[in-house]
Design a protein around this nucleic acid. Structure first.
Lengths: 335, 335
DNA sequence: TTGAAAGCGCTAACAC
DNA sequence: GTGTTAGCGCTTTCAA
């Protein structure tokens, strides 16, 4: 039979409560007692019972990851990072797919929180910026951490300086001699789309290049939208020699569109993306892109959330570094 | 304050236990009483408390998905399906990434089961066929369901008739006039690799084509391994005119290798894969492949597991249908 | 610094 | 068909 706290107490010659104190790192335990208890815990292979703890302590030791956007490598990475953070602190992670079109997200989250007694939630884009939801979470006093939230919605979580990253990418293209650099925008609901566009404009300015609105077209972050958008760019009378797509999926779509026209990447047109998901290494030619440390971002967001749950007010925003991944899809501008 | 079972009992004018009976669909409740209780439940917005239930019932209402193989679209789909099954029955899903090289999987799972008091686990390939683990799970009396396990290890879960699917794919190639059809094998630890090879051989036989072992090369299910393997096939004195790769990632790698040699797909070489993960639609040309209903497979495996947990002996193997996805990467054999 | 007692909200076992 | 009672294994409260 599994050891209970009572068995540990007996083995250590103390009361249940003292064992509980040691287990929870509460103060008011003498060093000697603590050691004796810890020894007993190890000897009996004691593990606290999750549900009993949750019931008595009036908390669930459960946090949820909220996401729309179910089909992504990005999400799996974030999830693995989060999982790691939760496991390290004996929390459980629950997944909550939310479908935007399917109606009232706020109500769904509310019932989830009530139902599962969540101790906190982690938000992923674009849910990070659903202001109605954020407001309600605050009213309900549910701690939350977010990943890549917009400036105004940042409280606890993790961000990357995307603006800066894109500037660096544009600088790379400019250095290769590109003068006409196109941009495929991301989905409007995502904060990232705004940053990446802003970074693009700023990057052009710093490189001494003129911003030409006809070189900027809409995308939706999907492969198909990148394909379509690239065709729109290439149909122009004077098409760009380089395209910066707001994510890798769209960049892959753009590469396909270019190849289908009988043009070569990067000889005729250079292409670059953002994220560094697996597809970036699997397209031909491999994609120059901005790498975000996605798994670490999940882990850090989780750790900040747990910190905040433990002692309200202690969670912060962590700024993590990006990396420029230069691969084969960018090259010198055609003469 | 949140309603408790006691409040519902009072509101309905019955005892706690009767409410409990209604909630758990136990027998021995009159229709009238059931209705009254259900009305009270709705009126009070009563939701059972997960931890209390788990504690009193000596079960966790928690199942885990065990997986190696962290970076896959496949996994995310399975997970979403599983999640759906769990939610429908008020179970929680826990994720357990297992790393094969990192030592003793059996010990890890054991401690997981003990720690979290798992009611059951779902196994994904290749963990489905770790016989030491399966044996231990049976000894510990932990119910498990598996997805695409090998014949010998199938007890509860879901499978696709991969052999048949591959036969159909080879028939498609033969019909296009291909006589020399190569095969890139999958990772040896996966049962799927064996089935797909067997399906390939059987498909050749049915099409009246000779099996030529020099046309079969090793792969690892990764993009890179597909790239390498395709090059090995194309380096031969009389290379194949069609290549069946055991999964889509390898097929994508093969396409890349072919293109790099200045050959065209499908004009010079046809390529097809297996799985229908997103990359299949995102390579150029888009990939002919076998589609497995991955999300449904996750859901069904979850449902069978929960059935088995509820009444041991009731879980079964579900055979789900595949679909042939004919796209642009296969065409008539060159003259 | 420590312990005893009283629950947390539910289900199991057994009565009626 | 229904109710009563006694826990499940832990934390909380309060007393020592």
């Amino acid at each position: 039979m599994r050891a209970r706290i009572e068995d540990v107490a007996e083995a250590a010659g103390v009361s249940m409560k003292t064992v509980s104190r040691v287990l929870n790192n509460e103060p008011n335990v003498s060093e000697a007692t603590r050691l004796r208890v810890e020894a007993a815990v190890n000897r009996l292979h004691y593990k606290p019972h999750h549900s009993a703890r949750a019931l008595a302590g009036r908390r669930s030791y459960l946090v949820a990851m909220l996401f729309d956007n179910p089909s992504s490598n990005y999400l799996m990475e974030v999830e693995l990072g989060l999982l790691d953070a939760c496991q390290s602190q004996h929390y459980n992670l629950m997944l909550a797919p939310l479908v935007y079109d399917a109606g009232d997200i706020v109500a769904k989250v509310e019932s989830l929180v009530a139902q599962s007694q969540l101790d906190g939630v982690v938000l992923t884009p674009p849910i990070t910026d659903d202001t109605a939801l954020l407001k309600r979470l605050r009213e309900l006093d549910v701690p939350y951490a977010s990943i890549s939230a917009k400036e105004a919605n940042r409280r606890i979580g993790v961000v990357v300086d995307e603006h800066h990253a894109v500037c660096a990418m544009i600088a790379h293209l400019a250095l290769l001699g590109h003068k006409r650099i196109g941009h495929i925008k991301g989905h409007a609901a995502h904060g990232a789309s705004g940053w990446r566009l802003a970074g693009y404009r700023d990057g052009l300015k710093r490189a001494g290049l003129r911003y030409d609105p006809t070189l900027v077209v809409e995308g939706q972050f999907s492969y198909e939208s990148g394909y379509t958008a690239a065709n729109r760019l290439l149909d122009q009378k004077s098409p760009p020699t380089a395209i910066f797509a707001a994510n890798d999926d769209m960049a892959a779509g753009a590469i396909c569109a270019i190849c289908e026209r009988g043009l070569s990447v990067p000889q005729d047109v250079s292409v670059c993306g953002f994220d560094d998901v697996p597809i970036a290494r699997q397209v031909y030619p491999s994609l120059t892109t901005v790498r975000q440390p996605t798994r670490d971002m999940g882990r850090l967001a989780g750790l900040e959330l747990l910190k905040e749950i433990r002692s309200p007010g202690s969670g912060v925003i962590v700024d993590v570094p990006y990396t420029l991944q230069l691969r084969r899809s960018t090259g010198p501008a055609p003469a």
